[in-house]
C-alpha cells in the first residue's frame, strides 16, 4: 500500500523532455532501433534520448515506455466495488490487493468505498476469482463489466504553459 507521489514541477522539464512526451505518448516507432529513429526526428543522439527517457521514468513523469495493452482483448476483466466500514477499509483493501488478478484498487468517497479492477485469462476464471474473493471478504461485490466503450484512450496534449502557472 502506498500514498500518492507529489506532483512534479514541470518547470524542471526542458524543451526536449516535453517534445519527447508530446510526440511519443501516442506511439513510438515500432522498428528495429526505435530510440535511434526518435533521436533522428528530434535532432538528438540515440543515447541522449535513452538517457532522457530513463530520467523521466525515474522521476515518475513517465509511468513506463512500452506497450499499452487492451486487456479486454488480452483476457477478461471488470470494474468491481465493495462497500465496507470506513474504519476497516485498509484491512479489506489488503485482502483485495492480495487476491490474484487485482490490478487497480482505489479508495473512493462513496458508500461503495473500494473500487478495483479484477482480471483473469478468461470469463469463467474471472467469475471464479470474484466468487472466491467475495467469500473471503464476506460482503457482496458490485460487478460492473464494460458493456460499451465510448472512449478508451488516455492520451491528450499536455498544456505545458498552463501547468507552469499552477
Amino acid at each position: 500500500m502506498h500514498c500518492r507521489p507529489q506532483p512534479c514541477h514541470v518547470q524542471n522539464l526542458d524543451a526536449l523532455d516535453r517534445r519527447l512526451i508530446d510526440s511519443y505518448q501516442r506511439g513510438l516507432p515500432v522498428c528495429p532501433r526505435p530510440f535511434a529513429r526518435i533521436a533522428e526526428r528530434l535532432g538528438a543522439a540515440e543515447d541522449e534520448v535513452i538517457a532522457r527517457l530513463e530520467r523521466l521514468q525515474a522521476r515518475g513523469v513517465l509511468s513506463r515506455v512500452g506497450p499499452v495493452f487492451d486487456h479486454a482483448r488480452a483476457g477478461a476483466s471488470l470494474l468491481a466495488a465493495v462497500a465496507v466500514p470506513e474504519a476497516e477499509r485498509d484491512a479489506f483493501a489488503e485482502l483485495i490487493n492480495a487476491a490474484p488478478g487485482v490490478n487497480h484498487n482505489y479508495a473512493r468517497e462513496h458508500d461503495y468505498n473500494l473500487w478495483f479492477v479484477m482480471t483473469a485469462p478468461d470469463a469463467s476464471a474471472l467469475d471464479a476469482r470474484l466468487d472466491t474473493l467475495e467469500a473471503r471478504l464476506g460482503v457482496p461485490i458490485l460487478r460492473l463489466p464494460m458493456l460499451e466503450s465510448f472512449h478508451i484512450d488516455l492520451a491528450f496534449p499536455i498544456p505545458w504553459a498552463e501547468l507552469e502557472r499552477t
Binding site: P7, Q25, G27, L53, V61, L62, R64, G66
Partner: peptide, 11 residues
Amino acid sequence: RIAAVPNHYRL
C-alpha cells in the same frame, strides 16, 4: 499503442 506513457498525476 507502444508509447511513452505519461503519469498525469505527476504532471
